[in-house]
Design a protein around this nucleic acid. Sequence first.
DNA 1: CGCTAATCTAGAACAAGTTACAGACTTGAT
DNA 2: ATCAAGTCTGTAACTTGTTCTAGATTAGCG
Lengths: 212, 212
Amino acid sequence: MTAESRADHRPASPPLTERQEARRRRILNASAQLAARGGFDAVQMREVAEAAGVALGTLYRYFPSKIHLLVATMQDQLQHMHTTLRKRPPAGADPAQRVAETLMRAFRALQREPQLADAMVRALTFADRSVSPEVDTVSRLTTAIILDAMGAEHPGPEQLSVVRVIEHTWHSALITWLSGRASIAQVKIDIETVCRLIDLTAPGAGAAPGGG
Amino acid sequence: MTAESRADHRPASPPLTERQEARRRRILNASAQLAARGGFDAVQMREVAEAAGVALGTLYRYFPSKIHLLVATMQDQLQHMHTTLRKRPPAGADPAQRVAETLMRAFRALQREPQLADAMVRALTFADRSVSPEVDTVSRLTTAIILDAMGAEHPGPEQLSVVRVIEHTWHSALITWLSGRASIAQVKIDIETVCRLIDLTAPGAGAAPGGG
DNA sequence: CGCTAATCTAGAACAAGTTACAGACTTGAT
DNA sequence: ATCAAGTCTGTAACTTGTTCTAGATTAGCG
C-alpha cells in the first residue's frame, strides 16, 4: 500500500526546482491569457511556448498535450475560485439555496472571461482516458466546492449521488451556454431545479449523519 | 408520420438527388463504422472519404467538418433508437421509472458500441457555435425521447426544466463513463437520482395516473 | 445530341498538434 | 573545477483536419 500523498496533482516524481516551478507558472499564465483572448483555438502550442519563453519541446515535457495543458489551467483557476469562495461563503438558509448561489457565483465569474471558460470546459469534456487523473482532480475540486456550500462534512452515498448529478448539470449547462444554445436565465433555472434534489436527501431522510 | 418530413437538419436548400442521398448514406455509414472500430480518432476524414467512395472535397461539401459529420452520425443513430424505443415502450408504473428505464436501455445500446458512442459524444460536447443547429436537433431528439417516456404530451415549463436537467445528467454521465471515470452502476444511480425530480413536478393536478 | 451550370474527383497545399533530434545549458556529486 | 546526467532550446519532420484548384462527370434543358 503506497501511502498516497494528499493533494496530488503531480505524480510526485521529482520535486521541481524553483526555475522549473517558475516555468510552469509562466506556461499556465500564458495559456490562460491566450485562452481568455480567443478561446480554445487561440491556445496554440507554439504561441503558448513563445509567450511563456520556453521551447516547444519543454512545453510538451511539462504538459503532454494541449488538453492536459488546458485541464491543468482549469485546475489552477478552480483552486483560485475555491479559495475566493471560502473567504465569502454563501448566505442562504438551506443547503439547496447555498449551492445554487455558489454555482451561480462561479458562473458569473466564468462569464467575465467567457473565452477562457470555453477553452477550459471544451478541454475538460474532450479529454480522453489519458487525461483521466487530471480530470478527476478537477472533479474532486468541484465536489469539494459543492459540499462546502452544502455544509455536508460527512456526506452519505445518497448525498454524493446528488452532488454528482449537480456536477453533471453544472458542466453540461455550462456547455450549452458556451455554445450559445441556452441563456444565462435558463442555466440559472436548471441549476435551481437540480438543487431541489438536495432537499430530498436532507440529513435524516435517508442518510444518517452519524459515524464516519 | 413520415420520418423525413419532420427531420429538418439540412437548410432545405436543394432537394438531393437519389445518387446524392446514396452518397450521404454511404458517408454516414462509413463514419459510423470507423467510429465503431476506433472511436473519435479513427474517424479520419481521408478514410471516411475513401470508405464511402467519394473524394475528400465531396465529403466536405456534405459535412463541413469532422464534428458536423459525427454530430450528423449521432442524429442518425438517435433517430434509429427513437424508432426502436417507440416499438417497445417502457413498462414502469410512474414516469420517473419509465424515464430511468428508457435511458438505461439507451445506455445499454451505447454500451454495445462504446467506441461509436465515444466518437459521437465527444463530437457533441466539443461542437462549437458553428454546429449549434445540428447539436440542437440532437438535443430536441433526446428531449422527445424523454418526454415520450414520461408520457407528457403537453409539458409545462417546470417539466421542461426537469427534462433539461435530465439531459444534462445523461450527457455528462455518459462522458464520465466513456472516459473511464465512472462505472455503469454509478451511471445507473445518477440517472435514477435525477429522475426523482420528475416526481416533484407531477403535472399540475396530482400524482401519476393509476396511482399506486 | 449539344450546351451550360453544378457537382465530383484527384491531388497538392496549408495549419496546428505532436514527435524527434542535435547541440547548449544546469545541476549535483566528487 | 570537472565530469556525468539530465534539462532546455531551436528546428525540422510528421500527422490529420481543412482549403484550394484544375479537370472530368453529371443533370437539366433546348
